[in-house]
Nucleic acid binder design. Sequence first.
DNA 1: TGCAATACATAGTTATGCAATGTATTTAGT
DNA 2: ACTAAATACATTGCATAACTATGTATTGCA
Lengths: 112, 112
Amino acid sequence: MNEEFIHKWESQVKKGILELVVLNILNNRDYYGYELIEEIRNYTLIEIAEGTLYPLLIRLKESNLVISEWVEQDSGIPRKYYSITLDGKKTLKELNIYWENLTRSIQKITTR
Amino acid sequence: MNEEFIHKWESQVKKGILELVVLNILNNRDYYGYELIEEIRNYTLIEIAEGTLYPLLIRLKESNLVISEWVEQDSGIPRKYYSITLDGKKTLKELNIYWENLTRSIQKITTR
DNA sequence: TGCAATACATAGTTATGCAATGTATTTAGT
DNA sequence: ACTAAATACATTGCATAACTATGTATTGCA
């Protein structure tokens, strides 16, 4: 009945959260874009469109939170690998703190 | 250093989440708008601007998730009280399920 | 008298997710 | 050999929502 409302809401909820997710994943090791999409799909069940991720990675790069490097493959299309920067790690720490407080707050509200 | 990035990110993260918070609060009892702002501020440390909440309540009403009623006061300005509808309760259940899965997924990523 | 708090509301700005579309290479199936 | 799907990147335009700024109006306090 309210499927449309819920669908729109789910899109809105992803705003900002996807940056948090991507930075946390890149905090473990380097990834290329297409790989990130699969990783997010597998580990979180979050659907992320290509038209969402690539601009997102560009924004992270422009904010100096990640750097990128083209890597030629033995066969196939070259991949652009992304690495988190020192700045990215520092910022991520603050995002994670904010996120933790936020979710704890909401937990209190939903379970009373 | 990246205060600007973090500040923008915090705004983006609130998108959708504020609707979840408001619906959960209204699921306990009726509130008027101004009261909701204080309630959210006190219980969650989430800052919500008036220019955010009032349009949000209008959207919830237009989606038939809440209804509103003007209530005259013995003294002072009349208050517009909001009540969650049956439709709102059903929708809220689904939002809470999605939210729970989402936060659990992110928890896995941030703590590895 | 004037300022802060209460209580509602809207217009314009800004940012992001997403569908649609595009390019190019490789692989698997028939 | 041909075709479709998968891989891998990217951009344009639309819809949506948070926020700043601004506005109206009442009440209480210094």
